[in-house]
Simulated scan of single mutants.
Amino acid sequence: MSEVPADLRYTKTHEWVKDNGDGTLTVGVTDHAQEALGDIVFVETPEAGRTLEADEACAVVESVKAASDIYAPLAGEVVEANAVLADTPETINTSPYEDGWIFRISPADPAAFGALLDAATYEQAVEDEED
Rank of each mutant, 00 (worst) to 15 (best):
D128N: 11
E77L: 04
D55G: 06
K65T: 07
D22L: 10
E47H: 12
R104M: 14
T30P: 00
M1S: 09
S106F: 09
D109Q: 12
T51P: 07
D22S: 11
E130C: 04
T26K: 05
G21Q: 06
A83H: 06
L52A: 08
A86D: 10
Q34I: 00
D131T: 08
A119N: 04
E90C: 10
A67L: 00
E77A: 13
Y71C: 02
E15A: 05
E15H: 03
Y10Q: 06
V29W: 02
A125H: 10
N20Q: 14
T51H: 14
L25E: 06
L85W: 10
D128I: 11
A112N: 08
V79H: 15
P46S: 12
N20T: 14
D22W: 03
V78H: 11
A67R: 00
I40Q: 08
A57C: 02
G76S: 12
S63A: 08
D31T: 01
D99W: 06
I102H: 11
H32Q: 15
L116H: 08
M1Q: 08
Q124F: 03
V41D: 00
P73C: 08
L8T: 05
V78S: 14
D131W: 07
E15R: 02
A66C: 01
T94V: 11
E47R: 15
W16P: 04
K12R: 13
K65E: 07
Y97V: 10
V79I: 15
S63Q: 08
T30A: 03
A66L: 01
T91Y: 04
W16Y: 10
L74C: 14
A108N: 01
A81L: 07
T121N: 01
E15Y: 01
K12C: 03
N93G: 07
G28E: 03
G100T: 09
D118K: 01
A75M: 08
A59W: 02
T24K: 11
A115Y: 11
E62D: 14
E44N: 05
T30H: 00
F113L: 14
I92D: 02
D87I: 02
L117G: 09
A115E: 15
I70G: 13
P73F: 05
T45A: 11
V43L: 02
Q124R: 13
G23N: 06
T13E: 15
E80T: 13
D87L: 01
Y122E: 03
F103W: 11
V43P: 04
Q124A: 13
A33M: 05
A81V: 10
E77Q: 13
T26I: 03
A33H: 04
F113H: 06
D128K: 13
K65R: 13
P46Y: 11
P96A: 13
T45D: 05
P96D: 09
A36W: 00
E129S: 15
K12F: 04
A86Q: 06
S68L: 00
D7N: 14
T13W: 12
E35W: 02
E56V: 04
A54Q: 10
T45W: 03
S95I: 12
D19L: 02
C58F: 00
G100D: 08
